[in-house]
Simulated assay, not measured.
Amino acid sequence: MDRDGGRERARAVPGMGSTALTRGGRNRLDQPLPPRRKLLPDYDPEAFGVLSERIARFLGTGRFIVWMTLIIAMWLVWNITAPTWLRWDPYPFIFLTLMLSLQASYAAPLILLAQNRQDDRDRVTHEQERKQNERSIADTEYLTREIAALRMGLGEVATRDWIRSELQDLVRDMVEHRVVFPAETVHGHEDSDR
Rank of each mutant, 00 (worst) to 15 (best):
M1R: 14
M1N: 12
R3V: 07
G6V: 12
G6L: 06
G6R: 03
G6A: 08
A10N: 03
A10E: 01
R11W: 09
A12K: 15
V13Q: 05
V13W: 02
P14C: 04
P14H: 08
G15K: 04
G17C: 02
T22L: 11
R23T: 09
G24P: 01
G24I: 01
R26W: 02
Q31N: 06
L33D: 09
L33M: 11
P34N: 09
P34H: 08
P35F: 04
R36M: 12
R36S: 11
L39H: 05
L40E: 11
L40P: 05
Y43G: 01
Y43D: 06
D44Y: 02
P45R: 02
A47Y: 05
G49M: 03
V50R: 05
V50P: 00
V50L: 08
L51I: 04
L51R: 06
S52A: 15
R54V: 06
A56T: 00
A56Y: 00
A56M: 00
F58K: 02
G62I: 00
W67E: 10
I71V: 12
I71K: 08
I71Y: 07
M74Y: 10
W75G: 01
L76R: 02
L76W: 04
V77I: 14
W78H: 07
I80V: 14
I80W: 12
I80E: 10
T81V: 15
T81P: 01
T81W: 14
T84Q: 10
W85I: 06
D89F: 06
Y91Q: 09
I94R: 09
I94P: 02
L96P: 00
T97Q: 04
L98K: 07
M99C: 09
L102N: 05
Y106F: 11
Y106N: 06
A108K: 09
P109R: 07
L110A: 01
L112Q: 13
L112M: 07
L113S: 10
L113C: 10
N116M: 13
R117A: 13
Q118C: 03
E127Y: 03
Q128L: 13
E129W: 03
R130V: 02
K131Q: 09
K131S: 03
K131N: 04
N133P: 00
N133S: 08
N133C: 06
N133V: 06
S136G: 05
A138S: 09
D139I: 08
D139A: 14
I147P: 01
A149W: 02
L150T: 06
R151L: 13
G153K: 06
G153D: 10
L154E: 11
G155T: 08
V157K: 11
A158E: 11
T159N: 09
R160Q: 11
W162M: 13
I163P: 00
E166W: 11
L167T: 07
Q168R: 15
V171Y: 05
R172E: 13
D173T: 11
M174E: 09
M174S: 06
E176G: 15
R178K: 15
R178T: 10
V179C: 08
V180E: 12
A183V: 10
V186P: 02
V186C: 04
V186A: 07
H187S: 13
D193G: 11
